[in-house]
Nucleic acid binder design. Sequence first.
DNA 1: GTTAGGG
DNA 2: CCCTAAC
Length: 673
Amino acid sequence: MVFHKRLDYGYSGYQVPPMPRVPSSARGKRSARRKAEEKPMCAFDMLATVAGELLSERENGLLLHKDGGTSIPAITKGVIKKENISHETPFKAEVFDQGSCNESALGSEKQVRYDPKECSLSPRTTGKDAREPVLSCKISEFGTPKKIRKEECSPALKVTCKSEDGIKTPFQGERRMFDNVVSGTGPEIFEDLMDVDAKPLALVSSASSVKVPIPRNPTFAKCSKGITVDGDDDENSSGCTNPRINTSKTFRPQCPSDHRIRKLFASKFWKVAPNDGELSNTEMKAIYRNRKLCYTREKTERCSFKRRKLFERRSISASNLDIYDEGVSPKLGCIKMEASDKHANLNAANGASSSTSGQKSSYESRDYHVKLNIKSFKVPELVIEIPENATVGSLKRTVMEAVTAILGSGLCVGVFHQGKKVRDDNKTLLQAGISHNDKVENLGFTLEPSYTLTPPSLLCPEDPNSIISSDTTEQLKIRIPDTPTTLELPAASDVTPKAPETLSSNCPESDHDSVPSPTDASSVDKTAYSKALLPVPSMNDALAVPVPSVNVDALAMVPLRKSRRTEQVQRRIRRPFSVSEVEALVQAVEKLGTGRWRDVKLRAFDNAKHRTYVDLKDKWKTLVHTARISPQQRRGEPVPQELLDRVLSAHAYWSSQQTKLQAKPLAEACLLA
DNA sequence: GTTAGGG
DNA sequence: CCCTAAC
């Protein structure tokens, strides 16, 4: 499966192609922004982009931890209640930059007290007692309030945070790291990046487990800013707000503390799939324990929505994900980065040179196309209890629901028992030989692409009017391994540039809801999906492909209670439009005009089954509204101003057309009269 | 079934 | 995203 990514506007570091149809005046307003956009993409951008796409969950499934919110999912029992935490005993904490931290405060250490108003609890992911909650709080004792990462509930813990090397933010540290990897240049590259990251994102945790098989030079060590909690080992203290550059540890998931995800989990794990009668009386628990992501969502972070996408969509990490520069350590890498002439030319054409200040790095001189080879994706730890008389199918679904709650639902789950694949969904676990005294190692799960029937038609036909052309747009190509991604075992994958004819793609995601998902993905000709091409916008939803008998929407519609289900139809799941979708919509409306939503749908969203023409109309409505309000008032994933400009102009144009059309008959009537 | 608009 | 009216 090859995914085509047109890197979107915004702070990806990509060259942004000339924007057609945009008045020069409008461009002038964005000059500052464009300046930033002219930075070449660094590896981190790429990873963020890739991961952001790959890790996207539907409906922003995993949301940010809300400050101050009590975040004890109902499924966790016996957690320490935050009221029980001593308010008296202070603990030490250090300022850790979340993007708004001033440098002077960075690294400072203070005794702080637990403030129930500013703290929240979330279940703890790791450690001996996984249910021990993790306290995260905002401490306002450092001058301006600072978001503080994870704290242990037990007070009197000293929390330290390294701040070295002038690196203000973990993000920058990571970024430098990746730049080093890509370009092989030294720290000086960072100088340029610093100012770019004036408003950095706080989180890099999704990349925290990225292995970087390059020499661990001091620079890297210094980049590693994290929190260590006294009396706790490294494992237990990483995660949360504090991104770490963890070059050896395995991925640690974050905690979806948001109420929505709690709801999601509550609904999904406490109740039973409606079609699964044998489970209806049983207790089914899946405690999703992982780390809290004390991510401060700041308006100023809009500049980097690509990365934010990644961070917001964390929760599953492209762990076992190696990155290397061809010239550095080709043998080690699993992600291969290479450049394309296209980008290089573009760079030259724009007279833009790398921000590495004249350093002729390999990064500059090569083409910028990127090859990725992602070994595997690690899924956050899930704890699932299921009765022995449950069916294998229900087991799969249970796991799937847990996983899809994190991943999106583009994968289905395969079950292995003692190395053998369990294919019969109707067998009970016992019948399949899975019993309670089975060793954990005997059971394995795989993630398998469930878009096995993805037809080539998913590819959008080349649109001559598309502003996205191979000439002007950098694209990231990802090929999903033919081998199903395994939960435990890295799946080999190879990556090749996509075929030229697929270069241009502006197709919004397909939903695949209608694609009947085979019970056993492996029984289907793998070439069917391995050869299928999807535009990258599909990534989100390509991952949101139905699982056996539970498709995305069905999943979303599983009611909390049966009675309720019969009472009222569940509201459709909210699926925010991606920038790519917005772009497709804008393009279609530019062409077709408003008022022809069915045509717009057919033209640009034919494969996106979950987008009705009403949705498109509504989206256009909100787009127009968004374009009219100030950027500060906007919410959600930022829509590039360029698109909003186009929205306004298209809206104005078609409105005038409409009035003309209305006026014309009138005028003619008058003339006739 | 589509479109438009309020919620 | 839902609902409804209007066509």
